[in-house]
């Protein structure tokens, strides 16, 4: 891995976000905004209780409210109000979403200026003094994390609190989390702990619990393994996450470039053929 900042004692750090203990308080969002000096978002009216809606250049932690609606069988009732409100909020699942700090990071592969780098903690950050806002990282992220600020013009995303990590401090969101849904630590230890948690949940009968982004066999890994991984209980699409993902450039770049250049040489051949035909006729 192309690590840009060298420090001998540093090791890979990550987040383990356990959605089974998240209570949706959004303290992590607030802590992130405060520590990182992020501006407030507009309030958007929607049918959801989740006013944040998505990760963006000014929202680096987002507590996603997975709201599943139960629509009961219509039954004869004289209570029209109840009938009209038939669809009820069945249950809530909360998931504090964040940049995944991928091992195969699409944004990092795409960046033409070298503004995106991998740090000594094997996290991915944007150097805001280098980014020129070309916007290529935005469609290159398979998780829809990084975004360009429409007023500032530069790309921005979670840094895993690089400034705090440099001083041996825990990232602001993990520090603020009251139920320890967001856990922070050395990556290998974190994965072991998360596996133990899944085993415990399986023992207790929550068979659907699984890790998203860690503990997979090499062929099943998401983007080479996620630096920030999750414990989920529903299929990934419920949380707006793809079932499979990799750096799009590593997946598609070589073949797209190869067919493109090959086509250019075929076009050159056709051009010479066209000229040969026309000039033979002229002679």
């Amino acid at each position: 891995m192309e690590i840009a900042v060298q420090r001998p004692e540093a090791q890979r750090m990550g987040f383990f976000t356990d959605t089974t203990v998240c209570i949706g308080c959004k303290a992590c969002e607030v802590a992130c905004k405060q520590w990182n000096d992020l501006p407030a978002d507009d309030l958007r009216a929607s049918l959801s209780y989740d006013a944040t809606r998505e990760l963006s250049a000014s929202t680096w932690r987002h507590v996603r409210f997975v709201e599943t609606l139960r629509i009961p069988e219509p039954e004869p009732t004289l209570n029209f109000v109840e009938a009209a409100l038939g669809a009820q909020l069945d249950r809530w699942v909360f998931m504090s979403d964040v940049c995944k700090h991928c091992t195969h990071a699409g944004c990092l592969d795409a960046c033409p200026t070298g503004a995106l780098i991998r740090t000594e903690f094997e996290t991915v950050i944007v150097q805001s003094d280098v980014c020129n806002g070309c916007g290529y990282c935005v469609p290159s992220c398979p998780f829809g994390v990084i975004d360009r600020d429409p007023y500032d013009g530069r790309a921005a995303k979670c840094t895993l609190c690089y400034d705090r990590l440099e001083d041996g401090l825990e990232p602001a969101c993990a520090k603020a989390c009251p139920t320890d849904s967001i856990q922070f630590g050395p990556y290998e230890e974190l994965v072991e702990r998360a596996k133990g948690r899944v085993a415990t949940l399986h023992e207790r009968g929550l068979e659907g619990a699984y890790l998203y982004g860690a503990g997979d066999e090499p062929q099943d890994q998401l983007a080479g393994g996620l630096g920030a991984f999750f414990l989920l209980t529903e299929p990934p699409e419920r949380y707006g996450l793809p079932a499979h993902a990799d750096s799009p450039i590593q997946q598609n770049g070589p073949i797209a470039n190869a067919t493109g250049v090959a086509a250019a040489f075929v076009a050159a051949g056709l051009a010479f053929g066209a000229f040969a035909a026309a000039f033979r006729k002229a002679r």
Binding site: G196, V198, A199, E203, G208, A209, Y210, P235
Partner: peptide, 17 residues
Amino acid sequence: ASASANGSVAEAARRAR
């Protein structure tokens, strides 16, 4: 969390994804 994880972790992810 239990101290030791069994092999079912990767299997659970494969089932879900």
